[in-house]
Amino acid sequence: MAILITPATKILIQGITGEFGARHTRLSLDYGTQVVAGVTPGKGGQFFEHGAHRVPIFNSVADAAKATGATVSAIFVPPPFAADAILECVDANLDLAVAITEGIPIKDMVRVKRAMEGRKTRLVGPNCPGMVSPGAGQDSHGGCRIGIAPGYINKQGHVGVVSRSGTLTYEAVFQLTTKGIGQSTTVGIGGDPVNGTSHLDVIKLFAADPDTHGIILIGEIGGNAEVEAARWIKANCKKPVAGFIAGATAPAGRRMGHAGAIVGGAEDTAAAKIAVFKECGIEVAVTPSDMADALLRAAKAKSVTLT
């Protein structure tokens, strides 16, 4: 009914006692997410309290996972310590680590990615809004919300959304929900040049998920991850796909907010990526306001029902 995480997934929060981590832990608990543990080295044995919730805090990820059965971590650790936090998840053999932290040095991520090769743990992020698999309750309550995305704009359903950008993802989800179209899972893979899970990785999961009927692929300038995903879609994915690329007006050589959003050559411009999308049968959203409509056009052309 979703990819990577479901409403039943048990998650732990690294950096639960920091201001940022605490705030989003409370929002996830309110959304009905199974937050079963927190990790803050030195604060093991204490509890994170919010309303009726009493979440135990541990000194290490391994301890937390062992005691609570958590399989996924949300990382809210400051940039200098974030790489170590990810490696701790790998060492504890978690299924998934979602790194929300923005501003991790590229070199740290290069080393982390190398260390993760051949290991069980998947990384989503860093510098990402996280993931949501909506629940069945009102305003999608009861879903699994990992990270900083708003939960209430989601609706349980059958569209997969993958994006590098946070607010642009919310924009797409909001458009879908407003039109009565629900989502299976929304994945923010993050705006950094070195990240754990790529557009293509997520697209493959959506393509294989029987409960996902259509996909929105949101990309931006810089790198060739969107192109790689588009070519795979052309060859392997029968589901309707809509795409949007941000940054058509970005000047070359400037970093547009995201560390990865920089035009380095002729092939990573918005125009080049849009051309590849079209060539690969992806319905291109003309403007960001057109993302849900673009998917509806793609679904109609393939006679697929999204709801």
Partner: peptide
Amino acid sequence: IALDGNIACLVNGAGLAMSTMDIIKH
């Protein structure tokens, strides 16, 4: 980041900020 047009934008989020520029141009 300064650009050379005449419509200023104020947006939250890098992706949304970039696409706001794009939609102005559109």
